[in-house]
Amino acid sequence: MTTQIQTPRRGKVTFGGVLRSEAIRMFSLKSTAILLSIAVVLYVAIAMGGTWGIGSLLQSMGDVSQMEGMGAMTQPGFASETIGSGLVFSQLILGVLGVLLFSGEFTTGSAVSTFLASPQRLRVMSAKIVLIVLLTGVTQLVSSLLAFVAAKPIAENYNLTLDFGGESFQFVLWYGALAVIMTALMGLALGMMLRNSAGGITVLTGVFFVLPIITSLLGMLADWLNNVSAFLPYQLGLSLATPLSVPTELELWQQLAGVAGWIVIPLALGAVLLAKRDIK
């Protein structure tokens, strides 16, 4: 029996095509716009409130440079770091977006359409990674810039220096974006592994808020656990973006290695499961 195998000329799947497909769907969903705007508004509001709070505190207390534990507040970059006060919230909200981008496929059954249109599952995963990195990274950069612009007049009112080109704001801007991207990718991996929105969001929140509490409690019993807590995603993001307020004993390369670990390990686990398990 001879069979003509003709390869269709049209309809070749490309990475760019899958990326466009993902973008069309992502921007057609209302949840995307809602989460992005909440992230931006909350971050800017916290930056403004924080700047106002620090400014009025310093004004009412006069010279705090001699006070115990207040030294950090008088350092030149401290006001700039205040811009990043809402970082954890941005991380969580955009992390949820990461969870939903993958868990939504399975909770709604649209995974079937997705993987029929592109049977190569890891290509779909890569497209989602690129999309969420661009989307959350750009959103966080925009948030920080908006927060800077909004907090500037408040800071000037209290004679605080907000230096755009200074190291502190640049850390907030770039490491903040890195922290957000790390969280969004962790969320994406959780959504891919658990295939469930509520589960993914709960675990992500747990890793951010519950794990630090547990390790600090246990840290009283075993000293080495304190070293572990420095590598938790909550701690890593803050110590990278706002090193004056949240100091760390880790070297920069150690911190970056920690971030890379939180990105690569969950995604690698997720990729293995995605390739192996059946799509329902």
Binding site: R10, G11, K12, V13, T14, G17, V18, R20, S21, E22, I24, R25, S28, L29, K30, S31, G104, T108, G109, S110, A111, V112, S113, A117, S118
Partner: peptide, 22 residues
């Protein structure tokens, strides 16, 4: 099974599928 995201329109769903293959 209905394999479409419930919050999508038929237009968005089909455009998204079509985009993968150009």
């Amino acid at each position: 099974a209905k394999s479409v995201h419930k919050s999508l329109t038929p237009l968005a769903h089909l455009r998204s599928m079509a985009a993968t293959a150009g």
